[in-house]
Amino acid sequence: VVWANSALLGPASERFNETNSTLGERSSPSCVQIRIPQELFLALGIISLVENILVILAIIRNRNLHSPMYYFICCLAVSDMLVSVSNVVETIFMLLNDHGLLDVHPGMLRHLDNVIDVMICSSVVSSLSFLCTIAADRYITIFYALRYHSIMTTQRAVTIIAVVWLASVTSSILFIVYHTDNAVIVCLVTFFCITLVFNAALYLHMFVLAHVHSRRITAFHKGRRQSTSMKGAITLTILLGVFILCWGPFFLHLILILACPASPFCNCFFRNFNLFLILIICNSLIDPLIYAYRSQELRKTLQELVLCSWCFGM
């Protein structure tokens, strides 16, 4: 079954079909297909899940991290966690099927596929949205530093978070319901491109004019604030870069579905869909490491959580 003819995201059905395919059904020798063991999916999914849970707990626990920026980062961790949870559930399902411990019925596979599709679609839409939100938050912090707390209040941050999640879940459900329409793929790709342009424009403006605003803010004895804000902007630039690298092949996959669904080259590209899934999972795994590396306060809280968990386990 070709991925483009199944559900919009279809990871469960795709991986199930790959696992049960025969040599005769595989691509020609000239088409390189990278085989990904199910155990690797499970291992990466569990590590990513644990990491993102620790980030969420650290932000909740440390009152110094109770600010709009870290609320948005917490939501980004939840988005990553959706990918991890869907991957772990899917992989366990596949492993049970491979070992003959689970009888897969078409209806059961379809329901699982739809649930995982919604989770992954919600993850990508919410991740892109929160990356934009964080970029806007950093922009306000740098260029409207003296008015930041009046502009980005906790109430407004909570409202933004609620709107983003509601829009993400609703659009994901609609995308899956109407997955046979190419307009859905066009919407996803367009949203991806718009968010990238939006983030690139904000970051470019921030870094080009940061020096001028640094002088102005320093005059008001807020030099440290500027330094912290720019550090946050650099952190989010790294996050955006990792997101593009990890999700880029997946969106190229969507573009090729529209551009050349019957081309031998494109079909060869489609057959490596599991590799694109691994990259997506790696994004969920790398993001918490970026948080910890770039934020001393968050890193300290994460260390305390890990040590407490280890002592409790002893």
Rank of each mutant, 00 (worst) to 15 (best):
N182Y: 14
A201W: 07
I278W: 02
L112M: 15
M69Q: 11
S126Y: 02
L239A: 13
R224W: 12
M108D: 12
I60D: 13
Q33C: 10
W3K: 08
I59C: 05
F198Y: 13
V164R: 00
A219G: 15
V118K: 01
L57H: 06
M230T: 10
S229Y: 05
C187H: 08
I142Y: 02
S123Y: 07
T22K: 03
N97Q: 12
D113K: 01
A4M: 11
S263D: 12
E297H: 07
N52G: 09
S122R: 00
R138K: 10
R63W: 06
I238W: 06
N267F: 03
V85S: 09
C187P: 02
R110Y: 12
I53L: 13
T195P: 01
V124E: 03
L174Q: 06
H111T: 15
N64T: 13
L279V: 03
F130R: 00
V163H: 01
S21N: 09
R224T: 13
L9W: 08
R271N: 12
E297S: 13
I194K: 01
L298I: 10
D181Q: 10
A12N: 11
C187W: 05
E39C: 06
R15N: 10
L289S: 12
R216Y: 13
Y71K: 06
H66D: 14
I59A: 05
I46Y: 02
L285D: 07
L65T: 08
L236Y: 10
R35S: 11
S263C: 12
R225F: 12
Y70L: 05
P11E: 02
T153P: 03
L9S: 09
S48Y: 00
F250D: 03
N62S: 12
L57C: 11
D113N: 15
P249K: 00
S168K: 00
R156N: 10
L54F: 14
L236K: 00
L146G: 11
C246G: 02
A210Q: 14
I160E: 00
Q38H: 14
S86F: 00
H66P: 04
V208H: 09
S172N: 07
N182K: 10
R61L: 13
T228E: 15
I53M: 11
V197N: 06
G241D: 06
N5A: 11
I59E: 01
R156H: 11
V85G: 04
S48G: 15
I142R: 01
F220S: 14
L102E: 04
R271K: 11
C308V: 12
M69H: 09
D113P: 05
